[in-house]
């Protein structure tokens, strides 16, 4: 073989598989007739691998096991444990990679700035578009919604002999292992929810007034925020199907026999709205899809949406919104602007 006259274009088409079946057959004959061309073609197919390695044996199975362990780890970071030391003078690629992963997994560390009032609390936080499941040491299970923060007693504080007080900002769905001797209490800025054998949802985002409690099964008791000296007497007792809205001033409104499906849909991976104000829908979408949504007309906020999204993409959700509420959607990356759609033309 004359190396000056190697037809590289033909070799390239052959290795890239970019030729008609007939031409591929002809190319194969041409290559196979020459041992050097054969070797060259083999090398081209393995061009990115280090010299001397035809094929690297990546251990895909054990790599998957490693990844799975990291996947099943709650998305949350224990912030009371000493934060990982990050040194900025990294001398090796490996440390650089480790740092990268730290950054990828650890953007939650931002939460470290959110100081717990008592030193023995540990914190968890989710970002927008994230949820997380926490298996608590007492057997209770807690699902934290997007852009939410939770503090609970550190170092197995939920074990025997301690109270079970957790502090929430944002939204959480709780399946509590009931223990009459140790009530499970969820504290928010607006009040306290105490379980009486229950699955319930607490929603207390700072951008929404007060807190909402939705009881899926069992019962809960609702308290005002604790004040020194005040008698601890429940404000309300809620049973399943009850939805209570408690504002910071202590006024509560309760709706009975509610189909709670749309409220807790997100715990199953859906996102549900049931006659929900667009203003509230928008706040939820911002949290779930990590976007900024602006309403150009304040009257839009009062339009009502009933819909369930099964993890539709943002563009699909917006399309549905546009159709069902007659709004015009303009999207530029992570910013969305909603304007009132054209007035429907009435039949003459």
């Amino acid at each position: 073989m004359d190396r000056n006259s190697i037809d590289w274009e033909r070799l390239d088409r052959y290795v890239a598989g970019r030729a008609s079946p007939d031409e591929m057959a002809a190319l194969a004959d041409w290559v196979n007739a020459d041992p050097e061309l054969r070797a060259l073609v083999a090398a081209m197919g393995a061009a990115g691998r280090p010299t001397g390695a035809e094929r690297r044996d990546w251990d895909v199975r054990s790599a998957w096991q490693r990844l799975r362990r990291r996947m099943s780890r709650p998305l949350l970071h224990l912030l009371s444990s000493p934060p990982p030391r990050v040194r900025f003078l990294l001398s090796r690629m490996l440390t650089a990679a480790a740092l990268l992963i730290l950054v990828a997994a650890g953007s939650l560390l931002v939460y470290g700035r959110w100081r717990a009032p008592a030193a023995e609390l540990q914190g968890f936080a989710t970002r927008r578009s994230q949820t997380a499941v926490l298996e608590l040491p007492d057997g209770s299970r807690l699902m934290l919604g997007p852009a939410s923060r939770l503090r609970l007693p550190a170092n197995g504080g939920l074990r025997v002999g301690s109270t079970r007080d957790v502090y929430l900002e944002g939204e959480a769905y709780l399946e509590v292992k009931h223990d009459a001797a140790r009530p499970f209490r969820v504290h928010t800025a607006a009040g306290v929810v105490e379980d009486i054998g229950t699955e319930f949802l607490v929603s207390a985002y700072p951008d929404a007034p007060g807190m909402r409690v939705v009881v899926a099964t069992g019962m809960v008791a609702l308290y005002r925020p604790p004040t020194a000296g005040a008698a601890r007497r429940p404000l309300l007792t809620l049973a399943h199907g009850d939805v209570a809205q408690l504002v910071a001033s202590g006024v509560a409104t309760v709706t009975h026999d509610v189909d709670v499906t749309s409220y807790i849909a997100w715990t199953r991976g859906d996102l549900g709205f049931d006659g929900t104000r667009l203003g509230d829908v928008v706040a939820a979408l911002e949290r779930w899809y990590d976007v900024e949504i602006r309403l150009t007309d304040s009257s839009l906020a009062e339009r009502r949406l009933t819909a369930t999204f099964r993890r539709e993409s943002l563009s699909q959700v917006l399309e549905l919104l546009a159709l069902s509420l007659n709004v015009r959607v303009q999207r530029d990356g992570r910013t969305v602007v909603l304007t009132p759609g054209p007035q429907p033309r009435l039949a003459q």
Binding site: P50, R56, W58, A63, R66, L67, R70, M71, L75, M93, L94, A96, A97, A98, L100, I101, A104, A105, S129, Q130, T131, G269, W288, Y289, D290, R311, S313, L314
Partner: peptide, 24 residues
């Protein structure tokens, strides 16, 4: 990156990120 270990770490990080942000 010319290092199998670093390559694996980086690829794993990509998959982990997809999983954590799978909803979107």
């Amino acid at each position: 990156v010319h290092s199998p270990d670093v390559a694996e770490e980086l690829v794993q990080a990509v998959f982990l990120r997809i999983w954590e942000h799978r909803a979107t």
